[in-house]
Design a protein around this nucleic acid. Structure first.
Length: 575
RNA sequence: GCCCACGUAGCUCAGUUGGUAGAGCGCAUCCUUGGUAAGGAUGAGGUCACCGGUUCAAAUCCGGUCGUGGGCUCCA
């Protein structure tokens, strides 16, 4: 173990990287080089355009500097001195950073070798104490993260106490790559994109579609069980709908261009809410019929900027597992608590047990009565407690139209994903003039909550694929068992067994190829099939199969009835 | 949208300084009829993303377009 925190090592590594870059490219202008969760980066501006191959040279130069065990030396300066020094070196970005330092704060520089940097520290004592570094990638990054500012060149790297820890980190990255849903999507023939269709538009292949359908079937059944009703609404709607909802004012950039139909503009829906509200407003509502819990697997289209598209998580057409709860103010607490309990149950069914809850409160710009915001916030807090959960508060992180709860789940390799969201909406009920007739015979404004558990089915499917590393549990798997006859003599028996299992409701395939058992097993494993049933003359004679499973390997000889029971147990256990 | 890189067979990739395309896997056919993570042989598959330019000649060099990847920004 090093005597320094990882951040110190990484931040020092960023300095060494900057020093190396300065050696190689003398005209470089520096911005900043902080440590991050996974490593560090430094932002540069210079004429030379960095490429991946430059990283090797920079890394080599860094290692030389590290080998020289150069001390990090701190000097304190007055603001004037600092300004003069930076101006003399033409370091404009640094001058702006200097101006950010509040009056009265110490201004310190750290020097290591030939490189001096405005920095508050701390650092390791000398460059030899940076254990192991690796430069990862070059990227563009706007100065101060603002797209109106010039784009700087950023180098990402990482550093650890030791070579071993660095290697372990690189291995984790490899593991994540193996699980990448885009890779598995092609390998397992689950889904694809096509240039002819357009970026960010997913085609679900038979196996992917099968799994999605299982998910949807489960989702629908559970929603009916939990008191929801399901809706179907159109994919497009007139401009007046989006004018009323405010989307054309606030969100037009995110919408597909309209199509002209009979002289009117129709837009592909970026959200389902206005349609659900139209259902609500289709007739007069009484407090007696609230809460209304309306859910829909609604496919929406959003014009995402080309640069943000990414596999299944970020696409242009996706299906939200959307629901709107419309209720009276005194029903809201129990409704939210129920949504939380419901989502925990759903997540558990897919093998996610670690859930974090984030509560986002009123931002600076907001609509709606502040009193309603307070009521909503209190209900959210209470609901979290009622569901037996803890939450972190994200002050001011809510949407302009209401506070919200977000859930983060942790997957099989410890990565967190933001998924479920429960959002109050004080905006749309107002805009659409939603009302219900209360006990007093007068119209009242209902509370409305949007909620999505998976968020989008596409994204969820991507997360799930990586969570299971492509080995979907039997209840979701398109093929639950594969029969591998050793020779063609057992083919007929194999088909009998297949029929018997299919009659029991299982999804079974027979490998009819003339390859060796070893090859058949290997192929079935590559397909992530959970159960393999091998049969030769012996099994055929004894009316058994030699079973193996992905998880337990050899299961031994079993009767077909036993295999069916075993798989059915497995299906039940996963629920 | 912006910065950088990339785009060659269904997949993973090779293709030297420009001389018109290759491997492995997969697929098909045939042989093999086998006992728990690859049996063998043969064969089919490519407008080298697309459009234009330079050149006697372009997968290769140049420009543009589209797409993909990493990142930034965005995600009312």
């Amino acid at each position: 173990m090093s005597k320094y925190p990882l951040e110190t090592i990484r931040h020092s590594a960023a300095h060494i990287m900057a020093a190396a870059v300065k050696q190689l490219y003398s005209d470089v202008k520096f911005d900043i080089g902080p440590s991050t969760a996974d490593g560090f980066y430094y932002d540069f501006d210079m004429d030379h355009r960095l490429t991946d191959s430059d990283l090797k040279d920079i890394e080599k130069a860094m290692k030389k500097l590290m080998g020289r065990k150069l001390p990090f030396e701190m000097t304190e300066m007055s603001r004037d001195e600092a300004e003069k020094m930076l101006a003399a070196d033409n370091q404009g970005y640094k001058l702006e950073r200097l101006a950010d330092i509040p009056e009265g704060d110490k201004i310190t520089f750290y020097t290591c070798g030939d490189f001096t940097d405005l920095c508050r520290g701390p650092h390791v004592e000398n460059s030899g104490e940076i254990g192991a570094v690796k430069l990862m990638s070059v990227a563009g990054a706007y100065f101060r993260g603002d797209e109106k500012n010039p784009m700087l060149q950023r180098i990402y790297g990482t550093a650890f106490d030791s070579k071993e820890e660095l290697n372990a980190y690189l291995q984790r990255i490899e593991e994540a790559k193996k699980r990448d849903h885009r890779k598995l999507g092609t390998e397992l023939d689950l889904f694809s994109f096509s240039d002819n269709v357009g970026p960010g538009l997913v085609m679900w292949h038979p196996k992917g579609a099968f799994i999605r359908n299982e998910i949807e079937t489960f989702w629908r059944a559970e929603h009916y069980k939990h008191g929801y009703e399901l809706l179907y609404t159109p994919h497009i709607g007139r401009s007046q709908l989006w004018e009323t909802s405010g989307h054309l004012d606030f969100y037009a950039d995110g919408m597909y261009s309209p199509m002209d139909i009979d002289g009117g503009n129709y837009y592909a829906k970026p959200m389902n809410c206005p349609f659900h509200i139209e259902v609500y407003n289709s007739r007069l509502r009484s407090y007696r019929e609230l809460p209304a819990r309306w859910a829909e697997l609604g496919t929406v289209y959003r014009y995402e900027k080309s640069g943000v598209l990414h596999g299944l998580p970020r696409v242009r057409g996706f299906t939200q597992d959307d629901a709107h709860i419309i209720c009276t103010p005194d029903q809201i607490e129990e409704e939210i608590a129920e949504v939380l309990r419901f989502s925990l149950m759903i997540w558990k069914a897919f093998g996610f047990d670690e859930i974090k809850v984030y509560l986002a409160t009123k931002p600076e710009k907001s609509v709606g009565d502040p009193k309603d915001w307070d009521t909503a916030l209190v209900s959210l807090e209470k609901a979290v407690k009622m569901a037996g959960l803890e939450c972190e508060v994200d002050e001011g992180g809510g949407a302009f139209y209401g506070p919200k709860i977000d859930l983060k789940i942790k997957d099989a390799i410890g990565r967190e994903w933001q998924t479920s969201t429960i959002q109050f909406d004080f905006n749309l009920p107002e805009r659409f003039d939603m009302t219900y007739i209360g006990e007093d015979g007068k119209p009242h404004r209902p509370f409305m909550v949007h909620r999505a558990l998976f968020g989008s089915l596409e994204r969820f499917f991507g997360i799930l694929t990586e969570h299971y590393a492509g080995a979907f549990p039997v209840w979701l798997a398109p093929v639950q068992a594969k029969i591998l006859p050793i020779t063609e003599r057992q083919l007929e028996y194999a088909k009998e067994v297949q029929k018997e299992m299919q009659a029991a409701g299982l999804r079974v395939k027979v490998d009819t190829k003339s390859s060796s058992v070893g090859a058949k097993i290997k192929e079935a494993r590559n397909e992530r099939i959970q159960y393999m049933l091998i049969m030769g003359d012996k099994e055929m004679e004894e009316k058994t199969v030699s079973a193996r499973s992905r998880r337990e390997d050899q299961l031994g000889d079993m009767t077909v009835a036993d295999v069916i029971a075993k798989i059915k147990d497995d299906i039940e256990a996963k629920r």
